[in-house]
């Protein structure tokens, strides 16, 4: 009997719910929610349809973002300066310490450069390849809980292709994942989907930098006897062909649980980024035409290309 009463109650509730939803015009929501859930599931599994939708979305949003970026530039600049004021003293102390360290390293670097040059001449070493680059402005930030990417206002018409490495003045910022006609999407090194083969520590031990959307990236596959310690530099290894060897990434830090990488790039202050028009050496072997552009930077020897405004005639 008790069961029957419950059953009746359930039935009445079940009848009332669709009626209430109909009255509140909520049924269309259910359809759209199912559609959006399907789209998210397709994105999750990397279905070509989802990738095509993202690509089309990039093309649609890009001109709007460019326009909004141009209109809102003074306000964005003022806001960024305002937020920078909060950490001005801390930032100044950091820069003073860094400047002191860099001055000490400058003399040593010049000495090493001379020695390397003379040794290369003695050994008749093949000169390092030159890599062209273009510099572009960041026009949109991804925001959100789990995607770390930015959109820059340079694209295929500037010679940019998916896979090209992207640098800021401080080091490797990421790589191009979508190249539109005039804009590109850059996946940052701390993004969940980013994996970069690196060299870490004094013995240049091989490892992999894995982004996990936190400010510090994971340092995986590092041999226990690598000798890597907190404070050691981390640079790209060149393995895999996406990134040239020797690009600065950051330093090792110890979180207490594991060694992680603190990227040298300030991802919350990205303004201009340089895209290296670098194709893997194997692409040249396969007869793929290499890019040509305006800027030229030697990799492995010179400093990271400094960020330059577009008005400087980079594009």
């Amino acid at each position: 009997m008790r069961h029957d009463i419950r059953s009746d109650s359930y039935q009445r509730s079940a009848q009332r719910l669709p009626q209430a939803m109909r009255e509140a015009s909520l049924w269309p929501f259910a359809g759209y929610i199912a559609l959006a859930a399907a789209m998210l599931a397709l994105s999750r599994i990397g279905h070509p349809y989802a990738l095509a939708v993202q690509s089309v979305g990039h093309e649609v949003a890009a001109p709007l973002l460019r326009t909004a970026s141009a209109v809102s530039a003074p306000f964005v600049g003022a806001m960024r300066r305002l937020t920078a004021f909060r950490t001005l003293v801390e930032e100044n102390d950091r820069l003073v310490a860094e400047n002191r360290r860099l001055r000490a390293n400058e003399t040593r670097a010049r000495d090493l450069e001379l020695r390397v040059t003379s040794l290369e001449a003695l050994n008749k070493t093949v000169a390092a390849a030159k890599i062209d680059f273009v510099t572009a402005r960041v026009i949109a930030d991804s925001g959100g809980p789990f995607v770390r990417s930015v959109i820059i206002d340079a694209g295929r018409e500037n010679g940019i292709k998916p896979g090209h490495p992207v640098m800021s003045a401080d080091g490797v910022a990421g790589r191009v994942v979508i190249a539109g006609q005039r804009t590109s999407r850059v996946l940052l090194t701390v993004d969940f989907n980013s994996r970069i083969p690196v060299l870490a520590g004094p013995h240049q031990a091989r490892a992999v930098m894995e982004g996990d959307n936190s400010p510090l990236a994971r340092l995986s596959y590092l041999a226990p006897d690598s000798g890597a310690r907190p404070g050691d530099l981390v640079v790209t290894s060149g393995v895999g062909g996406i990134f040239p060897r020797g690009l600065h990434i950051g330093r090792i830090v110890d979180t207490g649980e594991a060694l992680r990488i603190e990227p040298s790039v300030r991802f919350d202050r990205l303004d201009y980024l340089s895209v290296l028009l670098f194709d893997p050496p194997t692409a040249a072997l396969a007869g793929v035409e290499l890019n040509s552009g305006t800027g030229t930077v030697p990799f492995q020897e010179g400093p990271i290309p400094p960020a330059r405004p577009r008005s400087g005639g980079v594009r």
Binding site: L26, S43, A140
Partner: peptide
């Protein structure tokens, strides 16, 4: 929002629909 925030297609759509509902 998914497009401009470069999120996986459907993420902000679902958040918006659930909240609006």
């Amino acid at each position: 929002a998914d497009m401009v925030f470069q999120a996986p297609t459907g993420h902000w759509t679902l958040v918006a629909l659930a909240t609006a509902l």
